[in-house]
Write a protein that binds this DNA or RNA. Sequence first.
DNA 1: CGGATAGTTCGATGAACGTCGTAGTTCGAT
DNA 2: ATCGAACTACGACGTTCATCGAACTATCCG
Lengths: 107, 107
Amino acid sequence: MPASVPLPPLAYPDRDEITVEAVLRALADPVRLAMVRQLANSETEISCSGFEVPVTKSTLTHHLATLRQAGVIVGRQEGTTRYNSLRRNDLDVLFPGLLDGVLAAPR
Amino acid sequence: MPASVPLPPLAYPDRDEITVEAVLRALADPVRLAMVRQLANSETEISCSGFEVPVTKSTLTHHLATLRQAGVIVGRQEGTTRYNSLRRNDLDVLFPGLLDGVLAAPR
DNA sequence: CGGATAGTTCGATGAACGTCGTAGTTCGAT
DNA sequence: ATCGAACTACGACGTTCATCGAACTATCCG
């Protein structure tokens, strides 16, 4: 039996691996867009169960993975909880104005 | 036989009907993103057959319809040709920075 | 240890999407 | 009136995607 790993490390793309297309795809879903908005409007990080979205836990995990792989969010592990936050700086450097433009959307 | 209409009027959303989600969905496709980039980098408008994308004509029409319905482009009819251009001003007003951020993307 | 909590993984399913070919329409030119 | 060019509309096909429930792992607390 292999030595158990303290939870899968969870790979994040480097800044220069982030593509605008993946980011756009990630943002182009109502649930994920709501999650990004909640992250942007929150003073603190948000845990998986802290998002207010009308989907089950497994679906939520899927959306988090999509955002993570696209380079939109990062997660900080703490015990069984993973605290998520926006990669604001990386996104602003790569696509200046994109995130702010999306968040400024009236609808 | 019904009186022939000078080509279907082709409905475009008003500015206040444009949603950020539809715009993001429209931009989140490699072919459509290439089309938007070509429009942004072109001095002139681009006709349907003027786009350099690796798809057939019918697929191209489909992508143009998607961009049109999302409010990303407008078309000016002239004879059998429709000249397309970006709705830069509308998008900038609604989502300031979004389009520029996308176009600034290194990849 | 046992139980509770936080997330993940694994099919399965149904909807949406990109793609194409063909056929059809409008318009300009011959 | 006929032809070709520019584009649209329709139907089909395969893929991707969002969603769920159930089973599983990891961590923390009595």
